[in-house]
Design a protein around this nucleic acid. Structure first.
Length: 291
DNA sequence: GACCAGGATTGCT
DNA sequence: AGCAATCATGGT
């Protein structure tokens, strides 16, 4: 079943696809301006295809079945943040030092990860690694323990990850600790000790407090979950290298900014700190190799 | 060969 | 409370 939806402009889907294509596990087709998305709840694949422009965003959604259409539609709206008009966000930064960056990346939305558990696993794997090796490691992990359906990779469920022998992860070149973190997290979910769906309804601070208790999850990973897992709009990962480097370059400094300086600048960016962070990351992303 | 990656934990002052 | 060592490997 198919349907067409209209979104408030600006919304630059080609940039979204460019970004998604950095992760080899995503099923992106930039020629066709389409991406296939896993819907974990039903184990179904949904295709989203741009048929409009940044100024007139229009999409065709194709579902595998016509079961639970409203639920699936709401998942897609959420994932691509189609209910969040970007102009008001951008205007909030009009009189700030971020104005040019928001101009440059006009229409860039916050796109969410596809599943709560997968988000945390992915973040743990990415901790302290360069993006290219992190992607390699994630790819090995998902291809060994996950499932591919209709051309789309699904991360393994906690029940699977909880039972992985640590030696197998070491063979994939996980560090001992990364392996322990991933398996430990899965076990907490399987035992019912950690309920991510319940947690997703709580306030930022409470989510932080709960997640940081888990071994292997520190402030960076918890904030990342809030932003890219839950789509919370007002997070500012001050400890993040990328953010620090972006601010260093933006302010033409010869050192990284201090936490105090960052807090000071951030006050006028509220309540859209997540967008400030997102656009700062984009501002230092390398020009991508031509396909 | 050093040093850093979109960090977190552990053990030591 | 705050610091340094540790972790695996790839990129620069």
């Amino acid at each position: 079943m198919e349907e067409v939806v209209f979104v408030t402009p600006p919304y630059d889907f080609d940039r979204v696809l460019e970004r998604l294509s950095m992760d080899p596990l995503n099923a992106v087709n930039r020629e066709a301006r389409a991406v296939k998305i896993p819907f974990y709840e039903l184990g179904e694949v949904i295709e989203v295809k741009a048929i409009g422009t940044t100024k007139k965003p229009e999409f065709q959604i194709t579902y595998e079945t016509d079961q639970d259409i409203e639920k699936k539609k709401s998942y897609i709206y959420d994932t691509f943040q189609w209910h969040t008009p970007l102009d008001p966000v951008s205007q909030h930064f009009n009189n700030t030092v971020l104005k040019e960056i928001f101009e440059e990346h006009k229409g860039t939305p916050l796109v969410l990860e596809f599943d709560y558990f997968a988000t945390l696993i992915k973040s743990i794997i990415h901790q302290q690694l360069n993006l290219s090796f992190a992607h390699t490691l994630t790819e090995r992990f998902v291809q060994k323990y996950g499932e591919q359906k209709n051309g789309v990779w699904f991360y393994p469920r906690p029940e699977i990850v909880a039972e992985i022998p640590i030696e197998e992860l070491r063979e994939l070149q996980f560090s001992q600790r990364k392996g322990e973190y991933a398996i430990g997290l899965a076990k907490e979910i399987v035992s019912g000790e950690l309920d991510l769906v319940a947690l997703s309804k709580e306030a930022d601070e409470d989510v932080m407090k709960r997640l940081v208790k888990i071994r292997g999850i520190g402030p960076w990973t918890a904030e990342s979950f809030l932003m890219f897992g839950l789509g919370r709009p007002n997070l500012f990962p001050k400890a993040d290298m990328g953010i620090q480097n972006a601010l260093k370059i933006l302010h033409n400094m010869d050192r990284k900014p201090t936490k105090e300086e960052m807090s000071e600048w951030a006050t006028e960016w509220e309540p859209y700190l997540s967008y400030a962070s997102l656009y700062l990351w984009r501002s230092i992303e390398k020009q991508e190799v031509k396909k």
